[in-house]
Design a binder for these strands. Structure first.
Length: 145
DNA sequence: AATGTCAGCAACCGCAGTTTT
DNA sequence: AAAAACTGCGGTTGCTGACAT
């Protein structure tokens, strides 16, 4: 039992090293998220370069910012994309192109990454189908600022 | 039950723009 | 004005779970 625990502990300890060596993607743990949230509560969501060290986690400033912006921020709205939102994404993408952050700005609670992923996975299929059926049926769209 | 394949999500990287020194 | 540091964005890719064989 104890040897098994030691083994698992050793594996945990070597994970960052392995990640660095193999460029593996390390998922965020609840502990890391909590430490980051605490550091941000104290120091604010600024100066990302120093947040990681202040939080005491082995992550880059970019990684911390990304995690906060896309998952931990209270502004984030998790859940399925509604039909309305989907329609808006399609229209905005036609209008703006791959300006995901701009599109996200029009969708409260949604992030650029979420929209980018959604477009690249769900909508690309739909659009492929539509284009293969003949794109002449596409609606005329007017974007109102 | 085991293995292979695929789709979706999440993380990282490189670059460009902005701000600070 | 120039260099350095920081921030934000978009593209790419690895990981995981679900489904098929």
């Amino acid at each position: 039992m104890s040897s098994e625990n030691q083994d698992s502990t050793a594996r945990e300890l070597t994970k960052p090293f392995e990640a660095a060596m193999n460029k593996r993607k390390e998922r965020w743990t609840a502990q890391e998220e909590q430490k980051l949230a605490e550091a941000l509560a104290v120091h604010g969501a600024q100066k990302w370069t120093s947040i990681a060290s202040k939080a005491g986690i082995n992550r880059s400033c970019k990684s911390c910012r990304l995690r906060w912006m896309n998952f931990l921020s209270p502004k984030i709205k998790r859940g399925n994309i509604s039909d309305q939102e989907e329609d808006l994404i399609i229209r905005l993408h036609k209008h703006l192109g791959n300006r995901w952050s701009l599109i996200a700005g029009r969708l409260p609670g949604r992030t650029d990454m979420e929209i980018k992923n959604y477009r690249n996975t769900h909508l690309s299929k739909k659009i492929d189908k539509q284009s293969s059926n003949g794109s002449s049926s596409t609606r005329q769209i007017s974007i109102v600022d």
